[in-house]
Simulated assay, not measured.
Amino acid sequence: MARRPGYNLHKASGQARTQINGVEHWLGKYNSHESRRRYRELIEQWEADRKDQAVGLRPDITVGDLVQRYRAFAHDHYRKNGRVTSEVSALESVLRVIEKSHSKTYAADFGPKALKLVRDKMIALGWKRISVNKQAGRIRRMFKWAASEELLSSSVYHDLMTVQGLESGRSCAVESTPVTPVPVDTLTAILPHLRPPVAAMVQLQLLTAMRPGEVLHMRAEEVDCWGDVWEYRPGSHKTEHHGKTRVIFIGPKAQKIIEPFLNATETGYVFRPTMRNNKLPANRPYGRDSYRNAIKRACEKAEVDDFHPHRIRHTAATALRQQGDVETSKIILGHATIAMTEVYAERDHSKARDVMKQLG
């Protein structure tokens, strides 16, 4: 957002001055009523000029029009391997909210107060605080895109950036339940109730800290079985669009689990439902829903609490954090920052207790 020109003192003369769009304005004696009045007049004109610029590019475009344009852009932009990503469905949720409340509003008039109103509607729908903040960010990105397409002035986007995210305990938005690791005893209990490929995927996640999508789409040709520690380089992964590479290290325990499945296929997906059902296409992986539902059924049979497969990664991350330093854990987990690793790994207080047992 453009900074408001300041009311400044010229020490040598004792005069007040301000600079607007590169032009120096002398206002009179510093801190006098006249200089303050003149400064207010100039600032009011400056703000009016900025508003005129905001509507100057496409004064007729409404929020509803902008949503339709951005929706089309998103369907083309957010793609991986020829398919739209989950970002599109997340975006669609908030686009429906803003369409319902501000469809006929001129996009140039959609300011911070309008964004806060949309945010309040998301809270009324029962959306969690973290989700509300993420969705507000998606709205901002839509207006940033509009500026890049010269549909709106960038000042509209910069004004929206002044709206701070909701803070924990300082809003009426519902707080998210922290994602916790799955107890290892729970994982052990469900293994007998899973088909061999699914049981192998659960164990592999636990031993390697893979994301569910990484284990589901593992291909034999992407696994380098040389040396004491194998390497799996997914052809497609979460951060590939940022130009980052992903290497998953497979130790001896995990190798024993995956080896029978690698021996069964030289190329293609390592874990396939066709191993049990020959009517399905030969080169088809397990789907996310199939994996999730298989675990859910196994939990029911084992009479343990149900869990999402992604929580297995949290269990693995916590084990890594207990055994190694945080930088090593970050590399194994494929995180860009240590802060993200700390989110995934449950805090281990045992070392702190040992230190204080001696010092305290």
Rank of each mutant, 00 (worst) to 15 (best):
K121S: 10
F110C: 11
A147C: 09
M122Y: 01
D120W: 03
L166P: 12
K113V: 08
S131K: 13
S148Y: 12
K144F: 12
Q135H: 15
G111L: 09
K134C: 10
V156F: 03
R129C: 04
M142K: 07
G169I: 00
M142W: 01
T162A: 13
Q164E: 09
K144I: 05
Y157K: 05
D120M: 10
R138D: 02
K121G: 12
F143A: 00
I130N: 10
W145M: 07
A147I: 05
R140F: 13
S153R: 07
S154C: 13
A146Q: 00
K134T: 08
L152G: 03
E150G: 07
R138Y: 15
L160T: 00
N133Q: 06
V118P: 06
H158D: 04
L152C: 08
K113E: 13
L152H: 09
S148F: 15
R129G: 04
I130F: 12
S168A: 09
G111F: 08
A136R: 00
Q164A: 12
S131F: 15
R138G: 07
R119Q: 14
V156W: 03
P112I: 06
A124G: 10
W127A: 06
L115V: 03
D159E: 15
L117Y: 14
R129F: 05
A114R: 06
E167V: 03
A146L: 03
R129A: 03
N133M: 06
W145H: 12
Q135G: 07
S168K: 11
R119D: 11
A136S: 11
G126K: 04
K113W: 05
A114M: 08
R141K: 14
R140Y: 04
G169V: 01
R129M: 11
M122K: 00
L160M: 00
A146V: 06
D159C: 09
R140I: 05
K128Q: 15
L117S: 11
K116C: 15
S168L: 10
A147P: 02
S148M: 15
K134I: 12
P112N: 07
S153N: 05
G169P: 02
A108K: 02
L160H: 00
E149S: 06
R129V: 02
K128G: 13
D109Y: 14
K128D: 13
D159S: 14
S153D: 10
T162P: 05
W145Y: 13
Q164D: 09
G165E: 11
W127I: 01
W127C: 02
L166S: 04
P112H: 14
R138S: 06
F143M: 03
A147D: 10
G137M: 02
A146M: 04
R138Q: 13
G111Y: 08
S154G: 08
R129K: 10
L117C: 10
G137V: 01
L125W: 05
P112L: 07
G137I: 01
K116L: 14
K134Q: 14
G111P: 04
S131C: 14
M161I: 02
A146S: 08
R119T: 14
A147Q: 08
